[in-house]
Computed example of a mutant assay.
Amino acid sequence: MERIASALGDAARWRIVELLAERPRSVGELAELAGLRQPQTTKHLQTLARAGLVTVFPLGQRRVYAVEAAPLAALGRRLGELAGAIEAHAGDRDVIARYLAAIEADSAVADRERWADGRTFSFERVLTAPRDVVWRHWTDPGLLGSWWAPPPLTVTDCVLEPRPGGRAVLDYRDAEGQYHSQGRVHAATEAERLVFDLSVIEAGTVACTGHYDVTLTDAEGGTRLLLGLRITGTTVDAVPFVAGIETGWAQVLDNLADAVGAFRRTTASPDERREAQP
């Protein structure tokens, strides 16, 4: 496939294939129609032949070339698959576009320290799992690390100790670098409420701090999660972090919804196990 794509990457060769798609032609005819010299045309045809795109028919003193449809059809199918994959993941492109728009908007107003102080965000999800399962996904480091970062970030360390004064840590990385946030838990009521702060550390200093308030209540079919977030202590360098909150947390909570759903499918409660017994 790579050889076919490379052979068709030259404008002159592409024109030759277009001409051969109409009917088989001689080297001289192709050279005349493509506006090339015959030696050039011959070299292009040799490249196309090595890629399996054309076949030569020696007819006495003439050499007539014909295009092969199968390799082009295979390339067409592969391009169709790529186009389908792009369409299927169009949402990821939209996320990047929204993030860029947020960065541009915040950059226009981030002309002083504490420019975003007091900015608030609110998120809500109804999760298909009971409150104790959702709580574990917030407070068990292994479960927390399975969802607490949007793609393509990877969590390297995360802790939310569910007690007043407990540690709050979120470290993650991507191909460009590593990122660190730390803070403290202020309040924790099992399976009901978790309040904590996290400060983004950039170049050894706090770029901004987020105060988080997570509440869990019963909902039909599962748990209603409400997440409130208030920003304080912002510096001018906090633009990419503040701008990413809206799209980032939307992705992260989608991750959480998937994680608790998968957990429920693979881990039955004692009541569910008893009900399943004959």
Results as ranks from 00 to 15, higher is better:
residue 153 L to F: 15
residue 145 G to P: 08
residue 227 L to F: 10
residue 151 P to N: 15
residue 217 T to A: 14
residue 123 F to D: 06
residue 212 Y to V: 13
residue 234 T to Y: 05
residue 230 R to V: 05
residue 139 T to W: 14
residue 249 W to T: 02
residue 204 G to I: 06
residue 145 G to K: 15
residue 144 L to T: 08
residue 238 A to N: 07
residue 230 R to E: 12
residue 233 G to N: 14
residue 199 S to P: 08
residue 205 T to P: 03
residue 202 E to S: 10
residue 208 C to P: 12
residue 171 D to W: 09
residue 129 A to F: 06
residue 187 A to D: 11
residue 130 P to Y: 12
residue 166 G to K: 01
residue 159 V to N: 01
residue 235 T to W: 00
residue 167 R to N: 14
residue 192 E to F: 06
residue 149 A to Q: 07
residue 148 W to G: 06
residue 206 V to E: 09
residue 175 A to Q: 14
residue 220 E to F: 09
residue 170 L to D: 12
residue 232 T to N: 04
residue 156 T to F: 04
residue 232 T to D: 06
residue 236 V to H: 14
residue 198 L to D: 06
residue 176 E to H: 11
residue 127 L to F: 00
residue 185 V to D: 02
residue 124 E to A: 09
residue 190 E to A: 11
residue 213 D to N: 03
residue 155 V to E: 08
residue 190 E to F: 10
residue 123 F to M: 04
residue 232 T to R: 07
residue 148 W to F: 13
residue 167 R to M: 11
residue 175 A to T: 14
residue 165 G to Y: 07
residue 119 R to C: 02
residue 122 S to D: 12
residue 183 G to F: 07
residue 156 T to I: 05
residue 222 G to R: 01
residue 147 W to A: 06
residue 218 D to M: 00
residue 189 T to V: 14
residue 149 A to M: 08
residue 251 Q to T: 13
residue 162 P to D: 09
residue 198 L to C: 08
residue 165 G to T: 11
residue 121 F to M: 12
residue 166 G to A: 06
residue 171 D to M: 07
residue 140 D to L: 11
residue 137 H to M: 09
residue 191 A to L: 09
residue 119 R to L: 01
residue 122 S to A: 15
residue 216 L to Q: 05
residue 176 E to D: 11
residue 170 L to P: 09
residue 146 S to M: 09
residue 141 P to K: 13
residue 126 V to L: 15
residue 136 R to Q: 11
residue 224 R to W: 00
residue 211 H to D: 09
residue 166 G to F: 05
residue 213 D to M: 03
residue 120 T to K: 13
residue 228 G to L: 04
residue 207 A to R: 08
residue 221 G to K: 00
residue 196 F to Y: 11
residue 198 L to A: 09
residue 201 I to Y: 02
residue 226 L to P: 09
residue 200 V to L: 07
